[in-house]
Design a protein around this nucleic acid. Structure first.
Lengths: 241, 241
DNA sequence: CGCCCCATTGAGTGGTTTCAATCGCAGTGG
DNA sequence: CCACTGCGATTGAAACCACTCAATGGGGCG
């Protein structure tokens, strides 16, 4: 099952075995892509959606000077651009961070799911709304937090999300980004990102080096981030489903 | 038709007369609410969704000190919390700005739409994804623009959206907010919002006073905002459908 | 070895915040 | 009719956070 991690830790328990099989069957092929590879450009007509099996993918928009703003980051189990199915084209670019494996879901197959499987459709809809909830939290992060809080929030969210899909033990995980990517996600310069990381290290909250995050004081980090993971819509039971 | 403005200027032409009637029929009642009234608190179980017929509504989240961050603003024709249907509860509060009229859509009726009207369901899904696209643009606004650009962007977006539903002529419109609200949307202090408005006025771009926006130089304002309305997914034909 | 990417640090600048005070105006009650 | 009140708008001054510009160092790789 390539879609094993879909909605893992959220409400995947609501999917019947039939629905899970239908979803898996809607995937036409699997692809491997290298790091730093652009999958989709804003405005292109899209005819399939991309499910992330392994690796990390980001979405971003450029400003007038070509500076990037990340608007989302995806971890295994995420549908990266399912919104391309109802929307037909995207308002942002999509690119890999490290090397990835993705599943391709042609929109004509999703169309059949839409017609024949209303409940599964609602779960797919739900998954796109999770992205919207994370967008809102990013708005909060950028609008209300200082640089320390933003970076702490970024890593707190990533930790919680990776925990849901079994890729973080809650204290350490790998993510193939550099300080400049972090800066682009947090709306700060890469120079300042570096200083913030030092501050967080000196405060004994976390370290980040060579793509490896080690959280020393999760409660403290999440306090700095004003992080509350409710917006991730985790199922009551815990991380597994 | 209370839902007359739903998807107006976007892809409403795709809705058949039957579908429009079904949507209208899914509304159980109409309500009028006063200004500055909280409709929904984060975390509450929601059993209906709210369609905005007249007036303005905002969504927001509070930080630790109780300071607000607006994460969205809604204009007539918007489904304010349709995402509450697949999600069951919201991750943010919802409140009116000025006095409003809303339509109530019980989730059990939406459930019937979901099962029996797949294409209409996809259009409803699409409308929630428009919110997500606006969220992304707000992330860009906060992450990459300075205070002048953020305020210019806020008003440029509002102008474009109100134009789509016939509530702006492209140069002037009314919106029942004060400078403090603007500040909460743009992630700046209300003191600075005041200074930014003066700057925009002195540069001959726009004025805002007593809930009335007058755009003097739309191209200049949108340049300051780095605004490009493609993310609003306007239909090719223009504002009407 | 030399190059490039990434990380790191310093110094100076500037945009935004904070704190504080004032002003206009509309609503209220004496 | 007018003082009183409260909210929103406005302005000044000082402090601070983050940015810009600039330079250096480390590590991987051809």
């Amino acid at each position: 099952m390539r879609t094993e991690r879909f909605l893992m830790g959220r409400r995947r328990e609501e999917l019947s075995p039939d629905e899970r099989a239908v979803l898996e069957g809607a995937m036409s092929e699997e692809r491997s892509l290298p790091a730093r590879h652009v999958l989709i450009r804003a405005g292109e007509r899209v005819r399939h959606s991309t499910f992330l099996i392994h690796g990390f993918i980001c979405r971003y928009m450029d400003d007038r000077d070509g500076h990037r703003q990340l608007v989302g980051i995806h971890v295994p189990g995420d549908f990266v651009d399912l919104h391309g199915y109802p929307m037909r084209h995207l308002d942002h670019d999509v690119a890999t961070l490290g090397p990835v494996t993705v599943g391709i879901f042609p929109h004509d197959r999703l169309e059949r799911v839409n017609v024949d499987w209303p409940h599964l459709t609602r779960m797919l809809w739900f998954s796109t709304l999770l992205d919207a909830a994370m967008h809102r939290e990013w708005i909060f992060r950028l609008g209300r937090l200082g640089a320390d809080g933003r970076v702490a929030h970024f890593f707190s969210e990533l930790n919680a999300r990776l925990e849901l899909v079994g890729l973080s033990d809650g204290m350490r995980f790998d993510v193939p980004i550099v300080q400049a990517d972090l800066a682009e996600a947090c709306g700060i310069t890469h120079v300042h990102a570096n200083r913030v990381l030092r501050t967080l290290r000196e405060r004994g909250l976390m370290t980040f080096a060579a793509g490896r995050v080690a959280i020393e004081d999760r409660a403290g980090l999440e306090r700095t981030a004003e992080f509350d993971g409710d917006y991730l819509y985790r199922s009551r039971s815990g991380e597994a489903d």
